[in-house]
């Protein structure tokens, strides 16, 4: 099988890679670009641990072929903090103990950020439905939902 040569932008930086035709964006991020922050929990788009923003849209990177990123823009968990300054969501997740094992956390943070960009003042129900595609097996979601609410309030008052 002939490989593809792809040019794309990841977290604002140019990124160039070679991939097999059936490789997913998640495979490439993790195995070719060394960005292992996005996790593979299922490979079938059911768990959301691989959530990234592709061309300003929240996607499961396990369901996107790497070749589709040609000429596009990818934002991952590695690009969420501004240098050593955490995004309010990241900061509040630590303060409010919204993670236990932490493996779902990158996907949840990416998804929650996408929500707050669309809707800066979501209701609890809106948060619960928006994050319904992100499985967390440790927390029972309670502290995650509260952390998103707190971060949203903090961002609104900033």
């Amino acid at each position: 099988m002939k490989n593809f040569h792809i040019n794309t932008t990841v977290n604002g930086d140019e990124a160039e890679f070679i991939c097999e035709p059936d490789e997913t964006l998640l495979d490439v991020l993790r195995n070719r670009l060394g960005m292992t922050g996005s996790k593979e929990g299922c490979g079938t788009g059911d768990c959301g641990a691989c959530s990234v923003i592709l061309n300003d849209r929240l996607v499961c990177s396990c369901l996107v072929l790497a070749a589709e990123a040609e000429g596009g823009k990818v934002d991952t968990i590695e690009g969420m903090a501004d240098g050593d300054k955490l995004h309010p969501l990241q900061k509040v997740f630590i303060e409010k103990a919204a993670l236990q094992c932490g493996v779902c956390t990158p996907g949840i943070l990416v998804a929650a950020k996408a929500l707050l960009e669309k809707n800066p003042d979501p209701s609890e129900t809106e948060i619960r439905y928006w994050l319904a595609g992100n499985l967390c097996r440790c927390t029972g979601y309670d502290k995650i939902i509260k952390a998103v609410q707190d971060a949203a309030a903090e961002m609104r008052s900033a």
Binding site: T36, G37, S38, T76, I77, L86, Q90, I94, G102
Partner: peptide, 23 residues
Amino acid sequence: QRVSRPDGIDKVTGKALYGADLS
């Protein structure tokens, strides 16, 4: 007290290394 966990920053920034993350 409800202190911040020491592995928090690594886990919210994607730096923490899980089973599949090492090569």
